[in-house]
Design a protein around this nucleic acid. Structure first.
Lengths: 126, 126
DNA sequence: AGATCACTTCAATGATTGATGAATTGATGA
DNA sequence: TCATCAATTCATCAATCATTGAAGTGATCT
């Protein structure tokens, strides 16, 4: 690995309390949830489930996608506890895990939907 | 592609208002922000920046990593407007883009840090 | 101006990831 | 019980991603 500069000699004071206060498993878990959300197809699927509890074949038909494609996506979301499933007759219905998930998605879409900000924003924020 | 079942014949009523109300670009942008957050190394780096505005070589030295590794990570975060940079003398200092980012990270870490929930949680929520 | 320093960009590599058809599971209905 | 249907799992392939050393950039200092 390349050598790091030695600017620490110049005595940058640091307070690492918050950074150190989380366990490795916490970072791992939080990152894996974000990763599950970080795919356009999965995010659209989650948004769809805000208004409608739906079965797998419905979702597949609605988007013209394969069953296994949709099922794999739902598996990823289930593993992160973003959705829950429920069998009813021949169908398995999926819905969002809880209201916290709804808030997370709507919040993100709300921010992403805003117009591009001015270049000066990063400076003006202080 | 495999054939979809035809359960739509069974007449599932749907209301797609919210799902349809977002533009493709909105989903794309929101997903790409989540994707940037969905990497453990980047998430740790962001958390570090909550308490400390830091220069690249400081970060690298703190974790025993290469300069270019850290610089590439910061580039990804910059592109999603999660961090801002500022030159001061020989150093370039990085900090979080705004307080909204701080809230997003702390919220996610807070949830991820909770103890594993009971199996019945998904049922009990209704 | 020339040298040095902090950082960024480039390019190559290995590791993950998402989509997909085929095979499988498990519940339902004849 | 046997056939059917919805959904899942498996295995493969292409595409994307993170890391890393080397080369490049641009500001600072003498």
């Amino acid at each position: 690995m390349e050598r790091s500069p030695v600017c620490l000699d110049n005595d940058h004071p640091l307070q690492l309390r918050r950074w150190e206060s989380y366990r490795p498993a916490t970072y791992e878990k939080a990152a894996s949830v974000f990763k599950a959300l970080g795919d356009e197809a999965r995010l659209r699927l989650l948004t769809l489930l805000i208004d409608n509890e739906m079965c797998v074949s419905q979702i597949a038909a609605l988007n013209g996608e394969g069953l296994s494609t949709v099922s794999q996506r739902l598996k990823a979301l289930r593993q992160e506890e973003l959705v829950v499933s429920r069998r009813e007759g021949k169908h398995i219905y999926y819905g969002l895990y809880d209201e916290h998930i709804t808030g997370l998605i709507l919040n993100a879409l709300g921010h992403a939907g805003e117009e591009p900000v001015a270049v000066e924003k990063a400076v003006a924020r202080r």
